[in-house]
């Protein structure tokens, strides 16, 4: 049984094409549902906060809702820019809980962000998990305490590495997808 919803990926600013391609492929494999990349990029300038030198995640979410996606479509913004929410120093992503839009940033997930060696595979994996996580929020999932579940709360990139790129059984049940055993 494949889910009744679909995922649209929207680049916010310029995003390396191979990053988007890997992400699309990974999501389609896990979710067994249509996943496509929107042809138009979103210009990030209006979301820039010059004082913080970061981009406002909440404003991006508002923008993605305009016009609202078709029913069943979950629109996920993907960016390489650094995101913030007003009271937070930074966020990896943000989502409308139970709504159709979310945004995820690669900026702090790149291993080189904290001085580690670049690692393309790990970077792709982290972004895939972060997007799955935000997608889960758009499907009304809240944070999960199963340590390897994609809905686990990850405050640090290394925590993201510890998760599987899949939902645990209870979370998968809740959003009506079949559990993909990736091990």
């Amino acid at each position: 049984m494949s889910p009744s919803w679909q995922v649209e990926l929207v680049a916010i600013g310029s995003v390396t094409p191979s990053v988007l391609a890997h992400l699309r492929e990974g999501l389609a494999g896990i979710l067994a549902c249509p996943v496509w990349i929107a042809t138009l990029h979103v210009d990030p300038k209006p979301f820039f906060d010059p004082r913080r030198r970061q981009y406002a995640a909440h404003s991006i979410l508002e923008h993605l809702l305009n016009p609202p996606p078709n029913e069943a479509v979950h629109r996920i913004g993907v960016t390489e820019l650094d995101l913030f929410l007003p009271v937070f120093t930074h966020v990896f992503g943000a989502a409308q809980l139970g709504g159709p839009v979310a945004v995820a940033s690669l900026h702090r997930l790149r291993p080189e962000f904290d001085g580690s060696l670049p690692d393309v595979l790990r970077m792709h994996q982290r972004l895939l998990k972060e997007v799955l996580h935000e997608l889960g929020h758009t499907l009304a999932l809240v944070h999960c305490r199963v340590p390897w579940c994609a809905m686990g709360a990850s405050r640090l990139p290394e925590h993201v590495d510890l998760k599987d790129s899949s939902f645990c059984n209870p979370c998968a049940d809740r959003i009506g997808i079949q559990k993909m055993d990736l091990e």
């Binding site: 909440h58 929410l85 007003p86 009271v87 937070f88 943000a94 989502a95 809980l97 929020h137 809240v142 944070h143 709360a153």
Partner: peptide, 16 residues
């Protein structure tokens, strides 16, 4: 308002 919204949002995702 934006503080209430951001924090509210954040902790709802956390399951509170």
């Amino acid at each position: 308002l934006h503080v209430r919204e951001s924090l509210g949002h954040w902790f709802s995702e956390d399951g509170y």
